[in-house]
Write a protein that binds this DNA or RNA. Structure first.
Lengths: 128, 128
DNA sequence: TCATATAGGGATAAATTAGTCCCCTATTGC
DNA sequence: GCAATAGGGGACTAATTTATCCCTATATGA
């Protein structure tokens, strides 16, 4: 596991929430778990752009931060289920609000974001 | 400037808002500008842990994404003022909600976060 | 004359995050 | 026996983000 070399700031609420929600897929993981997709394989199907590995790592962090809980059933083949903790449930309204804002301003956002991404890239990645 | 090699996903609202709000200091920049700290030097003083360089870069991105506007006064020494755009103002309630959640759960968050950060680090960085 | 304040940028290095590849477990079905 | 399934993890590499260092310009005050 990666050993941090720089201590994060934990001065204010924004620092604190940042520590637990930053991570490319964390918010989406929380959202999908909230929607009832409990098992790792389901989550991987919902987020195909993330590698299995990274999802596992981020799920582990969410678990360490007590936002989700994990139950491992001792069966073969293995069965694992994630769920939001009570604490984790309290972030859902925030995620919902973020997603809603993004949806409301979808066109404008897409526009300003794409302006920053140069053409060659689009060309090279048309197939992805 | 860094040229992206991977096209970001822009499928849903969460992807979109992520593109404009990710960045270690962006949310704080928006917040302080909202509080009336308009000038670069003021912002740097409010966020001493960020290097001047990075703040400039992130301010530029916020500007490109039309969340803030920048006015350069042609005087010497230079004077620059940032302000939230109308669009930028619409994110403030979200940031406020995030910060509030962080504040409400401050103790618990600090606790779970620090558990993940190992002791040697704390030792090596006691002075920072 | 020299330091200070103001704003900014290039080059480069360091830190962090994400992704790829390959391997392991044990059972069921063919 | 062999493939498929479900969940994981180590080693390593690539991508991305932040930080550091140094340099530019001009006016003011000591």
């Amino acid at each position: 596991m990666y050993q941090r070399k720089i201590i994060p700031n934990l001065n204010c609420g924004l620092d604190l929430i940042g520590e637990v929600l930053y991570g490319k897929w964390k918010i989406r993981l929380l959202w999908f778990i909230h929607e009832g997709h409990k098992r790792p394989s389901e989550l991987q199907r919902k987020i195909p752009d993330a590698s299995r590995r990274v999802l596992n790592i981020q799920l582990k962090e969410l678990e360490d931060h007590e936002l989700v809980s994990k139950v491992i059933y001792p069966v073969v083949p293995p069965k694992v289920e994630y769920a939001l903790t009570e604490f984790g449930k309290t972030v859902i309204p925030l995620i919902s609000a973020l997603g809603q804002w993004g949806d409301e301003h979808e066109d404008r956002l897409r526009d300003v974001i794409l302006k920053q991404i140069v053409i060659p890239d689009l060309h090279d990645n048309l197939d992805s």
